[in-house]
Nucleic acid binder design. Sequence first.
DNA 1: GTGAAAGCGCTAACAC
DNA 2: GTGTTAGCGCTTTCAC
Lengths: 360, 360
Amino acid sequence: MTQKKRVTIRDVAERAGVSVATVSRVLSGNYPVPPATRTRVTRAARALDYVANAHARALVGGGRKTVAVVLRQVTSPFYAHVAEGVEAEAAERGRLCLVGTTGGDPQRELDFVQLMREEGAGVVILVGGVVEDDSYRARVAHYAHALNAVGSRLVLCGRPSPDPDLPALVVGFDNEAGARAATSHLLSAGHRDIVFIGGLPGNTALDARTAGYRTALAEHGLPPEAAHVVDCGLGRSAGHRAMTELLKQGRKFTAVFAGDDMVAAGVLRAVTDAGLRVPDDISVVGYNDAPLAQDLNPPLTTVRTPAEELGRAAVRLALGDRSDALGVPHILGTHIVVRDSVGPPPRPGGAPDTGGPTPA
Amino acid sequence: MTQKKRVTIRDVAERAGVSVATVSRVLSGNYPVPPATRTRVTRAARALDYVANAHARALVGGGRKTVAVVLRQVTSPFYAHVAEGVEAEAAERGRLCLVGTTGGDPQRELDFVQLMREEGAGVVILVGGVVEDDSYRARVAHYAHALNAVGSRLVLCGRPSPDPDLPALVVGFDNEAGARAATSHLLSAGHRDIVFIGGLPGNTALDARTAGYRTALAEHGLPPEAAHVVDCGLGRSAGHRAMTELLKQGRKFTAVFAGDDMVAAGVLRAVTDAGLRVPDDISVVGYNDAPLAQDLNPPLTTVRTPAEELGRAAVRLALGDRSDALGVPHILGTHIVVRDSVGPPPRPGGAPDTGGPTPA
DNA sequence: GTGAAAGCGCTAACAC
DNA sequence: GTGTTAGCGCTTTCAC
């Protein structure tokens, strides 16, 4: 019943009364063909609803140069935006875009990259912070050389290159600077007891954030002991749990800097649960400026990291002919976006109802 | 400098001192090969860091059966979760997953489906509500027949099949029932003046939602005029704008049913901006149960639509051999999740401070 | 201007 | 057990 037979170029040629070579020529369009035959062929192709076989085409043409992105998960707003940027930029340049998710499992990352090598992807983009151990270094070095050997590009997006001499492009944010700015913002508002919630020791992105946090503290003349990092990792529930715990401990602090906006969401909820108010009792700043930041209560002051632009930059870099940019990291700017979650610290023992939030 | 030459099966054969056929056999694994040769070949392949050419393989093997999803955008939580479901299920079954986004443009949808035909995708999943006009019907009929002719499957996910006889699978939610339940929830809490914000006339998903809303109203003995639908479409800003406008009009209502959670987020913000409170002054219910629903203030009562499961069901259905299921839609259940955004309507002219929210 | 023919890298008969 | 060979559908010299 079902014929399950694909229409091939041969069928089109036959129907148009020409050879396959001619059909190929008019379909590729990059060859002078007289309008008369061109029409005949086009008509035949249309009539047969012919579509070329991408595999055959890739086989002879040396790969169809697709763009692959690998990320932890698409449901995280940050990754989703990066993916969207990659997708958009790839589409604009007529490339197909493949998305792979790893759930953070290095093995799945490796499998996927391998698959992309089989596919002959022209660009492979690895997104997101990682723990930079020997295993990581070896893996990435392998990817880089293998991909480079066949003329493909590896892009490290938001993660470091283990070796500047590796044939890989790197693009990312200055997490340390962003975190420093966020912390300074809090310090300028008068806070001195600020805790960082959401550390993840070993993870390059979070380590940079905590480093920036410590730097800012030091710049304001505070001793190293002033730093208090809670290594609970990322995610709403981690933030909620950590903050609840912190509140229970009765530890003295007036502000928290959350590892990202999801953590901040959890923190906010924990504060509310405890009957406290933001920013009157506690100030909070997040990281990434996820869409939900403006819907939180109060709207969250956070660090904007243009994720979509990161994705676009990754493919732009890879597809640009600036192979000179191979070693040097391409760093995108971040900036604070001030909303309503930061205020002056409450006066010790005083009533919190002094007035609205008045950040600098 | 760069050799740009791919390692082929021939190279492996040569190094292992066997023929290409033998290499193919051990690599495919589906053929008895003595351990001795197997080892030699494996070792050679590893030494050369050989990866098979997926295109060549697909060319001879009749396509590599990938799964393609097409959606509006990945940054919408709902779509992201559907995509994650598809990705996960596809990965578990060893299929590669391609993601395409259309931004809602039918032309881009068409282009992408065409591309998937070229790729020889085994499954093509179209996600999300649409305006069901003649153009849509024709397009989908074309996809369905073309895909079916080469043994591929088309899955309509959250959108209707224009014709039950079309060789397409359909899976989705009962939007009407979900909306009816949400509206009933509001009615049971005592509300009589409920406005639906986020209509999108012509869109199958939203039309079903408004239909459910009207049905619930009727079931509770309210006249058709009791329905008030604001056709502002989806999205946070649309919801914010519409609600602000509504409040300004001074129109009488005590509850709003938002087209989805993003709209609800905008609505909530507008209520806050106006100095009113949810649920004391106005009750709100959303749709989809996006992750952000629980972070809103107050946590949002909404209709849970298991998006990831929708994605998984789509590929499961397509990959299952139950070709009998071709015409009949596969409907997934939804249910209300009660949080804190619904309370009894405020007593006319009374102070709103009667007590906490106490939904049935 | 157009056709014939040689592969691209691989798998699957079909020999031996 | 393993090698030889014929394609899969297409592009692209090279002839005519």
